[in-house]
């Protein structure tokens, strides 16, 4: 009797047969979780995670950009420095060239001046020599004529004749001197 009742009870509570009210409660519980966790909260965390990914990726991108900018600035700076160094060396070379030029010019000028002075001196000497020669020629002529007149005893006062004789004599003298010069040179 007891046994039969308990078997009946066990059949009523077969663990594989769901209670209807538990099905309802199960649906209710699942619905509550689906509405709050599923529909409200999960999209929120998904949004936040997406934003975080974006923020991290954006941060990395910004860091990379900053690094690129820094590199660019460094390159520019280096290029500027190089240009400045080049310019400085150019300036120095130019200055050296200019200095050399100035020295050369000064030298040349000095040489020209020296040459001019020498030439002037030469010309002056030549002129003085000519002058001296001129006066010497006249004096020598008179002296030699006088000497010759005295020697031959013949008056050679006639000036025309006198000068002709003297000139001839002098020319001969000059001729002699020139040939002598040619020989020596």
């Amino acid at each position: 009797m007891i046994q039969a009742a308990s078997v009946l009870a066990a059949e009523e509570n077969n663990p594989l047969i769901p209670h209807t009210f538990e099905l309802v409660v199960g649906i209710f519980s699942f619905a509550v979780v689906m509405i709050f966790l599923g529909k409200v909260l999960t999209p929120r965390i998904q949004k936040t995670l997406a934003e975080r990914t974006e923020a991290i990726e954006g941060g990395l991108e910004r860091a990379e950009q900053a690094q690129q900018e820094a590199q660019q600035v460094l390159d520019e700076y280096k290029a500027q420095q190089k240009a400045a160094a080049l310019e400085a060396s150019n300036e120095r070379r130019k200055a050296e060239e200019q200095g050399a030029q100035i020295i050369a010019q000064a030298k040349e000028q000095a040489q020209v001046e020296a040459r001019r002075i020498v030439e002037n001196a030469k010309a002056q000497i030549e002129a003085e020599r000519q002058q001296a020669l001129q006066s010497l020629r006249a004096e020598i002529g008179a002296l030699s004529v006088e000497l010759a007149g005295r020697v031959v005893g013949e008056s050679l006062e006639d000036s025309a004749r006198q000068s002709r004789v003297v000139d001839r004599f002098l020319e001969e003298l000059e001729e002699r001197a020139r040939t002598q010069e040619q020989i020596t040179s």
């Binding site: 199960g26 519980s29 699942f30 509550v32 709050f36 909260l41 929120r44 949004k47």
Partner: peptide
């Protein structure tokens, strides 16, 4: 069963209600 669903909702509410 209902309490379990409330635990899940409360926990995730405190975690994800205002995610940072």
């Amino acid at each position: 069963a209902v309490f379990g669903s409330l635990v899940v909702v409360v926990f995730f509410w405190s975690a994800f209600a205002n995610p940072k």
